[in-house]
Structures are given as C-alpha cells and as structure tokens.
C-alpha cells in the first residue's frame, strides 16, 4: 500500500514539473536573432570574465553591428587571441572600452564584479611551496579593499601568473611585493609572522582537494 502511494505521488510530481517547464518556455521567448546568444560569453584569458548579450541589446538597445565588426569579431576566441584584450586596452577605448568609458556606459575601471566574478573558492598556490591559501572574502568583503587595490598592480588577476614568476617568494614579499604590499606589520600583520594563517601545508592541501592527508601514498 505504501509503495502505491509513493508511486502515485511520484507521478503527480513529475506531471507538475512538466507543466512548470512548458509554462516557463511559453513566457520566456528569448529572441536569439534580436538579442544575441542566450548563454553568457565567457572569456578565460587573461582573466575570467563573462558577458551577457541581452542587457546590451534588448535593454540598452544596441544593434548587433554596433559592436560586431570593428570592435568585436563575432567569431569565438578572436578577441582573446589578439593579445590586446586587456584592461589597459579597454582604458584606451578598445573592445568594451568603446562604450565603457564612464560617459556612455560605466567606466571599465569601475564595477569590476559586473563582468569579473570574485572567486568563492580560496585561491591556492602550490609553488614554490605546497600550499598557500588566499580568501577574497576576508580581503574584500571584510575590509575596505577594492579589486584595484591589488589587481593588477600588486597581483596579476590571471590565474597562475604570480606562481610562474621566480619572484613569488617570501623574500620579495618582505620587500613589499605581492602580499607584502599590505602585510608589512603596519597595514596588515607582517608576512614573517603567523605563517600558518596562509600556509596550510601539504596536509591542508590534501584535505582541500578532498583527499585523506594520512592515506598511504603507495596504495597498499
């Protein structure tokens, strides 16, 4: 008897969700031709950025050719390959900067998070030592820092750039580079104190990656 009730309610739920789906489809008729692609354009280089067509077309009233042609090739990946797709060139009026100049649209050096997503997950560096963590949350939301306080002057936003530099060491931090720009004992705790606030060790790294830090490494 119980089983029958379960099956019956299952069918009702299923039917209900079909109704919901078809309803949504009916009200949200996204006009790809007029609005451009529905899913956001996501660039991963030089830093993760996303772009929604609809706020620019449907809401702001731009025609496709307002951008596609001289400013942005329609073909995927072209902007990234130019090597000029940077915040500096935006400030010079290229790409998004053609409109995002503070007059026609908000300036490209403001409202960073409108296009760049602040990572929820901690940033984890494994070189030169395993491993160091950084939480945007502690530095942004819980302090007065803005994105530009660190990016890109102190810290390149692009994943892996700092790590690849031979300069990404405690020594250069003590000299005021990278974290050392603030972690000087004045603005924030000195970089040669409280080591394990950021250094989580290999065990901490394993745990972060969902592995048991005490598991035998040879597999038996």
């Amino acid at each position: 008897m119980m089983k029958i009730i379960f099956i019956a309610s299952g069918i009702t739920l299923l039917a209900g969700s079909f109704l919901l789906v078809s309803n949504a489809a009916a009200t949200d008729d996204y006009d790809v031709k007029a609005f451009g692609p529905k899913s956001p354009i996501v660039w991963t280089k030089p830093a993760k950025t996303s772009f929604e067509h609809r706020p620019h077309t449907d809401v702001a009233g731009l025609e496709c050719k307002a951008c596609h042609g001289e400013i942005f090739a329609m073909q995927r990946g072209v902007a990234q390959k130019t090597g000029k797709f940077t915040m500096a060139s935006l400030a010079d009026g290229m790409f998004c900067g053609a409109c995002h100049d503070g007059k026609r649209a908000f300036a490209s050096d403001t409202k960073c998070a409108a296009c760049h997503k602040i990572p929820d997950d901690p940033i984890v560096w494994t070189k030169p030592v395993k491993a160091v963590v950084f939480f945007h949350e502690t530095h942004g939301e819980k302090s007065d820092l803005k994105c530009v306080s660190c990016h890109d002057g102190t810290f390149p936003m692009q994943v892996g750039v700092a790590e690849k530099s031979s300069n990404f060491t405690m020594k250069s931090i003590y000299e005021g580079r990278y974290c050392g720009a603030c972690h000087d004992g004045d603005t924030a705790f000195a970089a040669n104190t409280r080591c394990n606030t950021c250094h989580i060790g290999r065990k901490g790294y394993d745990r972060l990656m969902g592995r048991d830090p005490y598991a035998e490494k040879d597999g038996h």
Binding site: V129, C195, H199, G201, G219
Partner: peptide, 25 residues
C-alpha cells in the same frame, strides 16, 4: 618550530636521500 609551514619538502628530500620505502607507516 613556528616557522614550519608543513610543505614536507624535508620528507621528500629524506626519502630520496636515504631511499626510504614509503608505505606501511
């Protein structure tokens, strides 16, 4: 002690230098 960051580079170097067969604790 308070300078140790748990990077375990020392363990790797020891294993390599002294040919420690890791596993079985």
């Amino acid at each position: 002690q308070n300078h140790c960051v748990g990077c375990e580079k020392c363990m790797d170097a020891c294993v390599e230098t002294n040919n420690v067969q890791i596993g079985h604790g």
